[in-house]
Simulated assay, not measured.
Amino acid sequence: MTAAHRNLDRADAETDGRRAKGERRRRAIIDATLRVVARDGVAGVSHRNIAREAEVPPASIAYYFAGIDELLVAALLESCEKMIADMDRLRERVDDNREWPRAVAELIVEMVREHRERTLGEYELYLLAAKRPALRPAARRWIEIASGSINNGAGGDPPVIRALFAAIDGLLLQGLIADEPPTAEELEPTLRFLLHPVDYLRK
């Protein structure tokens, strides 16, 4: 290998390293935003507060995001990607449609128990979209993606699908405000009732 080739490889490696470091910092800022929103509400989101929570220089926030709304949109989209990953994980795990109620019940329990802070932050942003139009496409994204996964992508009756996801949102909110969050055993009968029509949905 010539010296020129070695220099090119070194430059590529440095570029990749900077890109990876930048992506880690950007993700740290987004995660910090969700934590601040969950703890202090949207009013607590400022360049200084997010920088302190993410342990990055305040100038980093302005470097990665043009403004607070752009940061909030990024946080919502990150939450959507996590929900999509959760749905993909469930699909890999569920071999029979009869297993879906238990699987969704366990996911809800995980969200309100193990990831309570993150879920609170997501719902704070979700509700903020009612006031800030810039956030609405991001707020709707997870519902659109999840709806598209019904019947292995074949879709279904839109009113029934809307009712299903509205009910799941309700169960999550009820779980968040409960003195003692529900268990999968408690949620499973409700999910079995809600998911019963899904096998029969058609476009």
Rank of each mutant, 00 (worst) to 15 (best):
L176C: 08
A166Q: 07
L191F: 08
L173Q: 09
I177R: 15
L194I: 06
P158Q: 07
E180D: 15
D169Y: 02
A166H: 03
N152K: 12
L194E: 07
R192G: 10
Y200D: 08
F165Q: 00
T183G: 14
P197G: 09
P159R: 10
L173E: 06
A154K: 14
L164C: 03
G156W: 11
L171H: 10
G156E: 08
P158M: 04
L191T: 01
L191P: 07
P158W: 02
P189M: 04
L171T: 03
Q174G: 13
A178F: 08
A154F: 04
Q174I: 07
I161R: 04
L173A: 09
H196Y: 10
I161A: 06
A166M: 08
D199V: 07
A184P: 01
L173F: 03
I161M: 05
L195D: 00
Y200N: 10
R192L: 01
G156L: 09
T190W: 04
L173C: 03
G175V: 02
F165R: 00
P181T: 12
E185Q: 12
V160R: 14
D199H: 12
L171Q: 10
A163S: 09
E188S: 06
D157R: 12
F193V: 15
A166W: 03
P182D: 03
A163I: 01
N152S: 12
G175Y: 08
D199M: 06
T183C: 09
P182R: 02
F193D: 11
D199A: 12
R162F: 02
I177G: 13
D157Y: 14
I161S: 07
P189A: 08
V160K: 13
N151P: 05
L176Q: 14
Q174S: 14
D179P: 05
D169S: 05
T190V: 11
G155D: 04
D199W: 10
G170F: 06
A184S: 15
L187K: 07
L164Q: 01
R162P: 00
D169E: 09
H196E: 13
L172R: 02
L187M: 04
N152C: 06
F165Y: 15
A178K: 05
P197Y: 11
D169V: 00
L164S: 01
D157M: 05
A166D: 03
F193I: 15
E188C: 03
P182N: 05
A166S: 11
P159W: 04
T190F: 05
F165V: 02
E185K: 12
F165D: 00
I161P: 00
E185S: 11
P197H: 13
L191H: 08
L164F: 15
Q174T: 13
A166F: 08
V160Q: 13
P189N: 09
Q174P: 00
D169L: 00
A163M: 10
